[in-house]
């Protein structure tokens, strides 16, 4: 009887044993296997001041998230406002909810962590770390209360308000001519050094963006040669150009487009490079950024095509819905 039971158990168990047996892969099968290059490590020693080590992760990330607060580098500094931070963004969001109630995630490609080492001495001094993205596309929302960083905004608009305010401009320009200039983080109205770029001051924490005191307007339309010459002498002073406001609170820019996202076909979105958050104890120009990251926590929000006319700049960009039950909407 025992033999019969043993034989039955053996017969039943044999197929399982056979299935569990491992089979060697052929060269052809082995050759098509991938997934081993998920991480890439690069060491960059070409900079005269710093060595960089970058750890890149081969990831495509779609994310929709909300946070009450992103606050980095909160400490007292005699050059900065009381109770301020290097970066303070309230109601920070990535992605949005469309009018049909669909979650439209923010798209991230190949995030990386990079370390910066001071090469001036023999010691390996770690002086900076940044979290960056190979590419990003989508809507980034939040109330930017303080920003040690860079927000690329371009102001372009009809020459009409300039013509209305200046007789020479009225003579040389047409209403249809387009005037423009790049905006940077500046000291705002009511602050010391109004209109001066923050990067030229001892302080770093900005809450205004605008056309600084050293930047002249450009006339961008064809056939505005006289106007173009005039535009070069139209330099704002103290956040005002002929009575027109040229500086705007960062808080007004509530939703920023990063890259050019195609919500209907996310695979065809155009990613913008350069979105990163970093922390450094010295001023560092991170590789491929073209931006000097100031000491402390720093955030670079790249050009996503934020181009506003004078009126839009004053009014800012409305916040988009980011929650199904949204305190800004419901």
């Amino acid at each position: 009887m025992i033999k019969i039971i043993f034989t039955l158990v053996l017969i039943v168990s044999m197929p399982a044993v056979a299935l569990a047996a491992m089979q060697p892969m052929t060269d052809e099968e082995l050759g098509v296997q991938t997934g081993q290059a998920f991480i890439q490590i690069d060491r960059n020693t070409s900079d005269p001041n710093y060595d960089f080590s970058r750890f890149t992760f081969g990831l495509d990330v779609d994310v929709s998230m909300n946070a009450d607060l992103v606050q980095l580098g909160r400490y007292d500094d005699p050059d900065e406002p009381a109770n301020s931070s290097d970066i303070q963004i309230s109601d920070f969001s990535l992605g949005y909810i469309d009018e049909s109630g669909n979650v439209i995630p923010f798209q991230i490609k190949d995030p990386f962590i990079e370390l910066a080492f001071d090469k001036s001495g023999s010691a390996q001094n770690l002086v900076g770390i940044r979290l960056g993205f190979g590419g990003a596309a989508g809507k980034l929302s939040g109330n930017i209360e303080y920003l040690n960083g860079n927000l690329e905004v371009r102001v372009e608009g009809s020459a009409r308000p300039i013509r209305d305010a200046n007789f020479l401009a009225w003579l040389t320009m047409r209403n249809s001519d387009i005037l423009g200039a790049d905006a940077v983080l500046v000291a705002g109205p009511g602050e010391a050094n109004t209109g001066e770029p923050i990067s030229s001051l001892a302080r770093r924490r900005a809450n205004w963006v605008g056309i600084d005191n050293d930047t002249t307007m450009e006339c961008l339309s064809s056939g505005c040669s006289l106007g173009a010459s005039l535009a070069t002498i139209l330099t704002p002073g103290g956040c005002s150009l002929l009575g027109i406001t040229t500086c705007f609170p960062l808080k007004n820019f509530k939703t920023n487009d990063i890259g050019n996202q195609n919500a209907l076909d996310p695979s065809s979105s155009n990613y913008a490079g350069g979105l990163y958050m970093s922390f450094q104890s010295q001023r560092v120009v991170w590789p491929e950024s073209g931006v000097t990251a100031e000491v402390g926590a720093f955030m670079n929000i790249p050009d996503g095509g934020i181009t506003l006319d004078f009126e839009q700049s004053f009014n800012g960009i409305e916040r988009i819905r980011t929650k199904f039950l949204d305190p800004y909407y419901d």
Partner: peptide, 17 residues
Amino acid sequence: TIANMQIQYLRATSHDL
């Protein structure tokens, strides 16, 4: 500080660099 961060959706897919 990053406070009260809530994820409504996340999908991360790896690929070869």
